[in-house]
């Protein structure tokens, strides 16, 4: 263990870094490239586990465990819950809608990455002290962290506690919906159903109509609309579109046109008859 935390890294750590580092990068790329949010979440969880291993490798034993328990275990599960709420199967289109956004993102990303790498490469980071002495001073990594948290960083620690409780309350407030009336029991619901006028389900809207929109009442055999076929809320708001009048008018117009056509043809025939009779004279 001490060897891992020492300034010189072992060959084993190097192998571990290259293998798991590759996995982490692939995981990260998959996170941003997967179509479905569930897959992204799983890939991110994988990356986080790899990072936990790296924490351990760097001598941060406490953080490594916390990473697995809190991050991978709790936060990622929270993500999955939300994904489930929103819709697991909903796949995102990866087609970009904002003009030039992808090019800008790629440009910025590349530039930013290159600059970061350049900065790191430029910095003189040759010396590696290792955590051995620091961990040993307090009798171990966890004890060392605890000592710092409860002495030097105690106020920050208390503040993060307050932040957490605030966030919890905030989440509750954001997602809470106040009930405006007492929830009906199953018994009450069934009784309501039986006592109502319509025992069978209400007729579907749009029957015999040329539309099947929900706000268009179905037509009864005599051509009049039946308001029962429309949702109770729409009925209450008076938002029923009555197309029966239009349909009737259309029909009437059609009849009129055909009559006119027939009549005109009849007139024309009459005229022709007259011409014929005149010729005959």
């Amino acid at each position: 263990m001490n060897a891992l935390a020492a300034s010189a890294t072992s060959t084993g750590e190097a192998v571990q870094f290259w293998v798991l580092g590759t996995v982490a990068v692939i995981g990260a790329l998959c996170t941003i490239l997967m179509k479905k949010a569930v897959h992204s979440a799983l890939c991110l969880a994988g990356t986080m586990i790899v990072l936990a291993v790296f924490y351990l490798a760097n001598g941060a034993y406490f953080l490594g465990v916390v990473q697995i328990v809190v991050y991978t275990g709790a936060i990622m599960m929270l993500f999955l819950f939300v994904v489930m709420l929103v819709g697991v199967t909903a796949a995102d289109s990866l087609k970009e809608t904002l003009k030039g956004q992808r090019w800008l993102a790629a440009g910025c990303g590349l530039g930013f990455g290159i600059l970061l790498m350049a900065g790191i490469g430029q910095a003189s980071l040759s010396t590696f002290n290792g955590l051995g002495r620091a961990n040993a001073a307090a009798g171990g990594n966890v004890e060392g962290l605890a000592e710092l948290i409860f002495t030097k960083y105690v106020f920050a620690f208390e503040l993060t506690g307050a932040l957490l409780i605030t966030a919890t309350v905030g989440a509750m407030v954001l997602t809470h919906r106040e009930r405006t009336e007492r929830a009906k029991t199953q018994r009450e619901l069934s009784q309501e159903r039986v006592r109502g006028k319509h025992l069978p389900p209400l007729p579907a809207p749009g029957v015999y109509a040329r539309h099947n929109a929900v706000d268009i009442a179905g037509l009864l055999p005599d051509g009049t609309p039946s308001e029962l076929t429309v949702n109770k809320t729409l009925r209450g708001r008076g938002q029923i579109r009555d197309v029966s009048g239009g349909a009737m008018a259309d029909l009437k117009a059609l009849e009129q046109r055909s009559e006119e056509r027939l009549g005109r043809e009849a007139g024309r025939e009459n005229g022709r008859d007259q011409d014929a009779s005149e010729v005959a004279k």
Binding site: L63, V66, L78, F128, N129, R133, K152, A156, T160, L174
Partner: peptide, 27 residues
């Protein structure tokens, strides 16, 4: 960095980051 400099302050900051990230995720 914590490993490079041989003290635990870096890990403390990472710890706080995790806590804040958790709060942020919740909200």
């Amino acid at each position: 960095f914590s490993r490079m400099h041989g003290n635990l302050d870096g890990q403390i900051i990472a710890f706080f980051t995790m806590v804040v990230a958790a709060a942020e995720v919740v909200v």
